[in-house]
Nucleic acid binder design. Structure first.
Lengths: 351, 351
DNA sequence: GTGAAAGCGCTAACAC
DNA sequence: GTGTTAGCGCTTTCAC
């Protein structure tokens, strides 16, 4: 009969248990020998407090390693110290888009210097009300809407509950008079197109973004304005979707329509990169046969052997400006209805 | 004497003001003719309640358009319903990295089906304690650490306050016995390297990630294991940093050392893409002269005329698994110390 | 300058 | 099943 040994179980799976005690304000007050209110005042930097008490409380805080409970603080203050970023669920590769990623990152960075915190809110398609409920449920002091699509207007009534700032102008003027932070898309594409003109292009095509987005419409308008100013034709337009593949396909369509153009303004760097890949495949040289300018100074504009001549829209700054605008709104400060973030033409080798 | 007309000012800048009143639970209860607790019970789906009262409360909720105040609820429940994602500030292009972006997105997506919310926490370099204070200040029910660097261990003591899950195994085994979600990096790189062997490569080099990261170390180990298994040399190693530029530079160094190798395992798709650009510039053909395999099925692996043969680490799933793990930990459930996310070899044309 | 007391809006025993 | 009563941990009048 063999002896059965039950091995001491070395668990490779466990449950988590808290091992720190979390001190409260009352404990700090007790240790400092003051009342809870006084301790609170010290923590909130109230002016009229004896240096002695300040020191006592500070010491107690350090000793206990106390950190205020935000939830309780927020309930008392009737605030949340949270900013929600609303991002569209259907945009599958939302974060893959360097534009959004950069904006969010810069907003998060800016907020990290304040007491606010960024919350990611994936707007559910299945339950669109969920987002609104969340935002109205005292979950955020303000919201930051990144999508540019039709559904945007849905978020407008939101603005009656909490301050909302849109990154990019929604297409249709909205009742709610939204707050907007954006670049001047018309001006930006005008600059990019003018560069082609000045470089000597005689026939300039464009690949646009979706015309249901303000950035789509505005960038064609800028292109058109620049060409009219130069007395050139404005017929070579192909509508696309801001994507790499879309740009490549639109370039094919353009080439089917005409082999005459010597300049292209693509409304996004992704589309420009896609178009250039098509041109190369067709044996066309950039910029010699076709000069290309675009908007966005992102990975697609930089990371190739052919750095694009492009309008940098400073997405890194944009996120911070949006966040700042929102906070000023939250603080009841006066804010412009629309804030333009400056842009800058970057000369590459594509034009 | 001219009449002076003061134009009615059309303000282009304004302050935001709230126009909705926010109903409270008490209002709902009053309208439904029940006590606050009963109303609360209905809202929280308590079992034993008369259908009649449920209906009454529901009606009141609808009528008032009531939505519970989370802050108050969380204070009472002593929870926050928030998950914090800790991201390293110094990783300038953090979001630009599709790996992180994809994980965050999938985590956010998963959480959107729960009552939890994702908070972005930029770990300040200037004030490293800030992050810890935040996390301990009742701001999150759990944290999700994305960085892989040395400083990781700093976050471990965090795990005494709230559950923490690491995306990717920290290099040194840590005292705190952290919870980890990762792919099996050794196995993944073994698979990728074996593919080169099976394809007939006789001399296989590798470009590694930083050896201060577990993913860096493990992936060399897998490469070495596969080569030893095949009886091949394991001397052609160049250490790099997972970046495109780093990969390109490492490839140059490799070529200086030897022109003999006919296979390369690059530990990340970005490095693979960089290396391939170097090879092309040197007139070497991929895969004919040098076959290349790597890890990551991201933009760098897909978006070129040369789709890479790579190990997909399913980042889209990884984020969800991490989030799920964290929530189970929060709920006091039993969780494996380390959870491996499955990987999959994707055959491209680079090898 | 500091303390006492009254909430913030909700949940959760505990009674009935 | 439902109401009553205490809080959750903090801020904030209002006295002194």
């Amino acid at each position: 009969m063999s002896e059965i040994t039950t091995p001491r179980e070395t668990p490779d799976h466990t449950t988590w248990k808290q091992s720190d005690v979390v001190p409260t304000l009352d404990m700090v007050a007790a240790l400092a020998g003051v009342s809870r209110s006084t301790a609170s005042r010290v923590l909130n930097g109230s002016p009229q407090i004896t240096q002695a008490t300040v020191d006592a409380v500070t010491a107690a805080v350090d000793q206990l390693n106390y950190v205020p409970n935000r939830v309780a603080r927020n309930l008392a203050r009737r605030s949340t110290q949270m900013i929600a970023v609303v991002i569209p669920e259907h945009t599958a590769a939302f974060f893959a888009d360097p534009y959004f990623a950069s904006i969010i990152q810069s907003a998060a960075r800016y907020l990290s210097s304040t007491d606010y915190t960024l919350t990611l809110l994936v707007a559910s398609e299945a339950d669109p009300d969920k987002t609104r409920r969340f935002l109205r449920g005292g979950n955020a002091d303000g919201a930051l809407i990144l999508s540019h699509h039709i559904g945007d207007r849905d978020y407008l009534n939101l603005a009656r509950s909490i301050p909302v700032v849109f990154a990019g102008r929604p297409l249709e003027p909205m009742d709610g008079d939204p707050y907007i932070v954006d670049i001047d898309n018309v001006a930006a594409s005008k600059v990019a197109t003018r560069h082609l003109v000045q470089r000597g292009c005689r026939r300039i095509a464009t690949i646009t973004g979706p015309l249901e987005m303000s950035a789509g419409v505005d960038r064609v308008d800028g292109w058109r304005a620049a060409l009219e100013e130069a007395g050139q034709e404005t017929d070579l337009i192909e509508v696309s979707d801001f994507s790499y593949e879309g740009g490549a396909a639109a370039a094919e369509r353009l080439l089917e329509r005409s082999r005459e153009f010597d300049g292209l303004f693509a409304a996004s760097a992704k589309m420009a990169a896609g178009a250039i890949s098509t041109f190369k495949r067709e044996g066309l040289r950039v910029p010699d046969d076709i000069a290309v300018t675009t908007i966005d100074n992102d990975f697609f504009a930089r990371n190739s052997d052919l750095p694009l001549t492009t309008v940098d829209q400073h997405t890194g700054m944009k996120g911070a400006v949006i966040a700042e605008t929102l906070i000023r709104l939250i603080n009841g400060e006066t804010v412009e209805r629309i804030t333009y973030v400056p842009t800058e033409l970057i000369i590459g080798t594509s034009a």
